[in-house]
């Protein structure tokens, strides 16, 4: 389906309003974008986390699609079980093949950390499912603890700004590259401000015969410490500072989807309370160090795209 706003506005919502997400939460915006992009029946699995908590306070549910939550770490295995049952029942003629798509929406804690083994296993086995990481760069549901997706220098409640240690010392994991290393047929990074890019990626992802992975930056006003109306603007700023490059990897071919006029990382740090300590003069060296890391990663991405001939 061509992605026009006019047409999209006529599609029914698959995530009902009235859920309990915070004002300014990017997660529910992204979920609606993803579900709107898929023109097939969809079955969704969600691990324990913000999205699960805010959309299914029994006896209410926001989901107009079949939905399952099992535990924190195992959504990839859960959806793999459902997808396998689908193949089994279709093969045996017990149900009709309606081209059903299987989708996980999981936070970065569930994806980068506690659920990495489960995701790796499910991707290696080649189940047909789309795994969307709603990456808000920390354990927000439990109250802003650092994850391996938390960027260097960021304040969280388990990487506090102290007298000796100033925020998170370590760089984040390159999750998308980890997925690419599984020879996954489709992997991408996206962000909600670039809705057409995100939705196009979803449409490509659900067409592949195998697993697909999209890591979507999901600004969190509570955890990042910004005003609720700035969510989409921050999504764009992340792409413009090369904090969150938008690209896709199709069958191992890397392609950059957006080449910004690169803004300095201080723009990013100034925009959110979680980085405010980095603006202090005594932490200038940290800003330089982090800028160095961002530059290096951006260059590495460009090289990967060039080598693939799709830059």
């Amino acid at each position: 389906m061509a992605l026009s706003l006019k047409q999209l506005s006529t599609k029914g919502e698959l995530l009902a309003p009235g859920h309990r997400a915070c004002a300014g939460c990017a997660e529910t915006i992204i979920v609606r974008q993803v579900l709107h992009a898929i023109d097939y029946p969809v079955v969704v699995a969600v691990p324990t986390g913000c999205l699960e908590v805010v959309t299914t306070p029994y006896p209410y549910t926001s989901w107009y699609v079949p939905w399952i939550h099992s535990a924190f770490e195992n959504s990839a295995s859960t959806i793999a079980g459902a997808e396998t049952m689908y193949r089994s029942l279709v093969k045996q003629g017990k149900i009709e093949d309606r081209g059903t798509k299987f989708v996980v929406f999981a936070g970065d804690g569930a994806t980068y950390d506690i659920g990495l083994q489960f995701l790796s296993g499910a991707v290696e086995r080649g189940h047909r499912f789309l795994y969307v990481c709603l990456n808000n760069e920390a354990y927000m549901n439990t109250g802003i603890q650092r994850s391996s997706a938390t960027p260097m220098g960021a304040w969280t409640t388990t990487s506090p700004v102290g007298e000796v240690i100033v925020g998170k010392k370590e760089n984040r994991k390159d999750m998308t590259a980890i997925m690419v290393a599984h020879n996954i047929p489709y992997a991408a990074q996206a962000a909600p401000h670039a809705w057409r890019d995100l939705m196009t990626k979803v449409q490509k992802a659900v067409e592949v015969d195998g697993p697909s992975f999209i890591d979507v930056l999901s600004p969190c006003q509570r955890g990042w410490r910004y005003e609720t109306e700035e969510t989409i603007g921050l999504s764009k700023l992340a792409a413009d500072t090369c904090i969150w490059p938008l690209y896709e990897v199709v069958d191992g071919v890397w392609k950059l989807n957006y080449r910004p006029k690169k803004k300095p990382i201080t723009e990013w740090f100034k925009s959110q309370g979680r980085f405010s300590h980095l603006l202090r003069p005594e932490n200038k060296h940290l800003v330089e160090e982090i800028q160095g890391v961002v530059d290096k990663e951006w260059e590495r991405l460009l090289r990967r795209c060039e080598v693939s001939g799709a830059a």
Binding site: I68, S70, A71, N74, I79, G81
Partner: peptide, 9 residues
């Protein structure tokens, strides 16, 4: 975990 997804399916 996979049995849970499969059985629910």
């Amino acid at each position: 975990s996979a049995c849970i997804g499969a059985s629910a399916a």
